[in-house]
Design a protein around this nucleic acid. Structure first.
Length: 889
RNA sequence: GCGAGAGUGGCGGAAUUGGCAUACGCGCCAGACUUAGAAUCUGGUGGGCGACCGUGGGGGUUCGAGUCCCCCCUCUCGCACCA
């Protein structure tokens, strides 16, 4: 293309010309040196503060946030994907004129630092900060548009001072409290384990059995917000349904009643929660959890031995026993009886292995006729079954029932309530219970308060002092941050590494008496529950964040991260936001307006029957295992993990192909919420595409530089018209795909299509085409390609933008807009169907009427072949799309 | 068991509102260029010789179904004696 502009006078044949052109281009064209280009623009962006958010809280804000990483050593493909997605959104909205804030930081307290310290003899702080420095450099090499001035790391005193401050505010508000609670305890290591360190009931390190141990722990009262947290799941349309469902299940609201059953012959009462008060008259026994405190008090002498043995047995089986598929319901009679609060009937009290102490009150009123579990239990232990609800029109008999009846029906055997529907019966029973002062309506949640105490070193110290006289006393605010001491022995046998006198010995702030500091640190989920607020005021010294800034920037407009945080982190952060709002620190109800949960990054696995998973280099050129020479099978595509030996190091990919290619591929191969199959040939393909764009611009750089982009002044025909239309169609498509759907894969494919069109050698098919006009159309198309590509491959886009002679760098350039008029065509192709099957295509004028179409179609020779001798029943015309002729068969 | 999501060429995926199934990319095939080439460019590529058949399977609604409805199968994820 553009023969003349390159070789002004002498005419060439196509062949000889192309040959010459290739040689010349090979000699002269600027090569695509991704490394050089990427370094150049990264330096320039940093120097010019290209991505600093507007500090005066002006304009239309847009807060893009990706989940901050744990600095484990180096970034992995999951990070690459997460941050590539976020960067497209950030760059896009910035070009759209929004005041974008796009920060990054480090979730840098946590166990791996401590383990690394034990294993390698380093200090957790040194290890963590080295990792942060390394990973920051990696992120910078990806060319992500972060406002690095807002960087925070949760392990720095500047940050955790405010985690401690928030803890104290929660304490003031009654949102933090202390209670005894059971923890996972490894007797061999004599230490507490986090849940994830318990594998099948065994300690991950020494494989000895983990036991429950009661410890005093700090809790956050998240249950105070259970109702609001649940309520707002209906008000978060920008969240994936499944995340909301998971949170709803986690909160687990049940509406029902509480009732008290007096224990016969003792002053004790059993309190129960039920969702079926309507079945209260059908209670034939009571089940208690083995850990229920009443068990010891009410068991009769003659039953004592058996009950004790049973409780021990259940304890020994551990918590996981319930999850086993062959788990069987078992129980023992305690010898005690209690009274039905309404009927006064005596019912036996059992201890049952399926009753959970952690849910409701740890006691269940058992109604075998209307609850399957109770039914099975009653059958096993020959306990009577009493029907109190009959299905409409039927009468149940306990002896013939094969399963519990849990449906709706009419109440029977229920004294005054006989004959009422069980739905009305619920309220009626609650009324009777209230009148008798034996119960009331009650709402129960599965959600428990959040235990935040960790017997660990590398975390935020809990700012509490224990005084024998004054109790738990908060560390005075002015003494914050309470610094984590340096010289601490890790991996020792003590309960908490912080339990050393140099740290714990302190005078009580209230009475001055020698006292002891709390030795536990906070769960790291505390740190990540408010980091998005610290980004807004990273240097503020007298508060965790500034209220005006928080009210301007919050909520986060788009949050992006992994599905693994669907419940814990996202629920805790929501709780924190509401609690901080009630403390008066900001006005926001919900922290994250829109949530995108990206899929996992997967890769094919290699397997040898003898050696299991293999690394790619453990397979020789003949496809055999290098060790045993047995054939290697290409296994399933699975989530990248070290154990499956199918990880790809982003550094290697970035080094070889550049950040632009790496980003482009991770966005092109699948839509964000789906799993992504990493594929080295696919990466090659993305590189090839970028190289094509590079050549397209650089091979024609003189023409392009001298052209003014076509802006729709003159009427275009033929190929030029096609290019012009395609340019605007692509702008529309890419804008929509990014803004409305985050479907980056289709956005990229649209740019590829436009690029392919521009590669077609049709520029001079009509000799009369004006050189200047075709240059203008070409330039407009190329500008679109470069701008539309810029959120995905920002470095190349900047470089090409500069090469085109633009004075303003691309990051300051607005997103292109499309001209609706350019999309209009005079003629269009009409798909012609007979009985819904494609039979012909017709070119028709865009303004054609239905009658004209009918005439045209029925006279078409191809169509006539199909309609010959057939009765035409009707003709359906979808304007601009298709026409369907319905004929008799 | 309950809840959510998915199933489309050899592969990743597209089809936004019921309207040309398989865009774009990978792979493969052919051609061009080349001393040569794994580079680059161009073209082809669901199956079947064909009428036709094709979006996990079966039925339905419709002029028309990957898309809507009913039943079933498979996979992934979450929850799971929650009283």
């Amino acid at each position: 293309m553009y023969y003349k502009s390159l070789y002004a006078k002498k005419p060439y044949t196509i062949k000889s010309f192309t040959r010459l052109l290739r040689k010349k281009v090979k000699r002269e064209m600027k090569k695509y040196e991704h490394k050089k280009i990427e370094e150049k623009w990264q330096t320039l962006w940093a120097k010019s503060n290209a991505f600093v958010a507007d500090k005066d809280c002006s304009g239309e804000k847009y807060y893009v946030l990706e989940m901050f990483p744990y600095p484990s050593g180096k970034i992995h493909m999951g990070h690459v994907r997460n941050y590539s997605i976020g960067d497209v959104i950030a760059r896009f909205f910035k070009m759209r004129g929004k005041n974008v804030i796009h920060p990054m930081g480090w979730d840098s307290f946590g166990l791996p630092a401590e383990n690394a310290a034990i294993a390698h003899g380093t200090h957790p702080k040194a290890w963590t900060h080295e990792n942060i420095d390394f990973m920051r450099a990696q992120l910078k090499r990806m060319g992500l548009s972060y406002d690095w001035a807002r960087e925070v790391a949760s392990c720095t005193p500047e940050y955790y001072k405010w985690s401690q401050w928030i803890f104290l505010k929660f304490l003031e508000k009654g949102l933090a409290y202390k209670k005894k609670s059971s923890v996972n305890w490894c007797p061999d290591c004599s230490t507490v384990l986090a849940n994830e360190q318990v594998e099948d009931g065994l300690c991950w390190r020494c494989e000895s059995e983990v036991i429950d141990r009661e410890l005093e722990q700090w809790f956050f009262k998240i249950t105070d917000y259970a109702e609001e947290l649940l309520d707002f799941t209906e008000k978060l349309p920008g969240w994936p349904e499944r995340v909301l469902t998971m949170q709803k299940n986690w909160i687990g609201k049940s509406v029902g009643a509480k009732a008290t059953f007096s224990v016969l012959g003792s002053g004790e009462v059993v309190e129960i929660f039920t969702t079926r008060p309507d079945t209260l008259y059908g209670v034939t026994f009571m089940s208690l959890a083995p850990e229920h405190p009443l068990v010891e008090k009410i068991t009769t002498q003659d039953r004592d031995k058996e009950v004790r043995a049973f409780v021990e047995k259940v304890k020994a089986e551990g918590k996981n026993a319930l999850d086993a598929p062959d788990f069987e319901k078992e129980g023992v009679f305690t010898g005690a009886y209690c009274l039905n609060p309404l009927s006064g009937e005596e019912v036996p009290i059992y201890v049952a292995n399926f009753v959970l102490m952690g849910y409701g009150t740890g006691a269940v009123m058992a109604v075998p006729a209307h609850d399957q579990r109770d039914f099975e239990f009653a059958k096993k232990y020959k306990i009577p079954i009493k029907v109190v609800i009959n299905p409409p029109g039927t009468e149940l008999t306990p002896d013939t029932m094969e399963e519990a009846f849990t449906g709706e029906g009419v109440m029977v055997n229920s004294a005054a309530l006989d004959g009422t529907s069980n739905l009305e019966g619920k309220a009626a029973v609650i009324r009777l219970l209230s009148e008798a002062k034996k119960g009331e309506e009650s709402i129960n949640y599965r959600l428990r308060d959040w235990g935040i105490s960790r017997q660990r070193y590398w975390g935020c110290p809990i700012p509490i002092i224990y005084c024998d006289d004054c109790g738990a006393v908060p560390v005075p605010e002015k003494e914050l941050p309470l610094l984590l001491p340096d010289g601490v022995e890790l991996g020792g046998a003590g309960l908490s590494p912080l339990d050393i006198e140099s740290f714990t010995k302190v005078d009580c702030p209230e009475c001055g008496r020698v006292s002891k500091r709390e030795t536990d640190t906070m769960d790291t989920f505390v740190d990540s529950s408010w980091y998005f607020l610290r980004y807004l005021s990273p240097d503020l010294e007298d508060l965790p964040f500034d209220k005006t800034e928080a009210n301007f920037w919050m909520p986060v407009d788009q949050y992006i991260g992994g599905i693994e945080h669907a419940v814990m982190h996202l629920l805790y952060a929501r709780f924190f936001t509401k609690a901080l709002r009630d403390i008066g620190l900001l006005d926001c109800d919900e922290p994250f307006k829109n949530l995108l949960t990206q899929g996992m990054v997967c890769m094919e696995t290699l397997k040898c029957e003898e050696h299991g998973y293999l690394l790619p280099e453990e397979r020789d050129e003949n496809g055999l295992c290098v060790r045993c020479k047995k054939p290697v099978t290409v296994g399933s595509v699975e989530k990248m993990s070290k154990s499956k030996k199918n990880t790809i190091d982003p550094d290697g990919i970035i080094e070889r192909y550049g950040a632009d290619t790496t980003r482009l591929f991770s966005l092109f191969a699948a839509p964000p919420e789906r799993d992504l199959d990493w594929n080295l040939d696919g990466v090659e393909g993305s590189y090839r595409f970028l190289s094509r764009v590079w050549r397209l611009v650089n091979e024609n750089i003189e023409t392009l530089k001298n052209a003014t982009p076509y802006a729709g002044e003159a009427k275009l025909e033929g190929f030029l018209g096609e290019v012009h239309r395609a340019t605007h169609k692509t702008i529309k498509k890419v804008s929509g795909d990014i803004e409305e759907r985050f479907h980056f894969n289709t956005a990229i494919s649209a740019v590829m299509e436009l690029t392919n069109l521009l590669y077609q050698d049709k520029w001079r098919e009509n000799k009369d085409i004006d050189e200047e006009l075709s240059g203008a159309v070409f330039r407009a198309a190329i500008e679109a390609v470069v701008l539309l590509l810029s959120p995905f491959a920002p470095h190349m886009a900047e470089e090409l933008w500069e090469a085109l002679g633009s004075e303003v760098p691309l990051y300051k350039t607005p997103w292109p807009s499309f001209d609706e008029r350019a999309l209009v065509t005079d003629e269009l192709e009409l798909v012609c169907q007979i009985n819904g099957k494609l039979r012909a295509r017709l070119m028709v004028s865009a303004s054609v009427t239905k009658a004209e179409v009918e005439k045209l179609v029925l006279n078409d020779s191809k169509i006539k072949e199909w309609t010959l001798d057939k009765e035409i029943k009707k003709v359906i015309y979808v304007p601009g799309k298709l026409v369907n002729v319905v004929v008799a068969k």
